[in-house]
């Protein structure tokens, strides 16, 4: 899974494109104005994406001190 890092682009685009697609305070998401709720969701998805990347990243395995070069 050498190219798994590219997965990070998805939530970053999501985060940035919210105001481009729909620059408005409504409808409310998660009880917050649209843009803020939208960004909160994508910030969480960034964390999820980074967790997936970490789990599949070959660089992690080769440099993990507890599991040296499998």
């Amino acid at each position: 899974m050498k190219h798994i890092g590219y997965l990070a682009i998805v939530p970053i685009l999501g985060l940035l494109l919210g105001p481009v697609i729909h620059n408005s305070s409504t409808p409310f998401i998660l009880g917050m104005p649209f843009l803020l709720g939208w960004m909160v969701i994508w910030v969480v998805l960034v964390s999820v994406a980074m967790a997936v990347i970490y789990a599949l990243d070959p660089a992690r395995v080769t440099t993990d001190p507890e599991h040296p070069r499998r």
Partner: peptide, 23 residues
Amino acid sequence: GAPAYYILAYGTIGYVLAYFVLP
């Protein structure tokens, strides 16, 4: 108002960059 949201966005992207750049 809304321009304050940029603070939330730039830090998040900064951390993603850090994943690849800092090692």
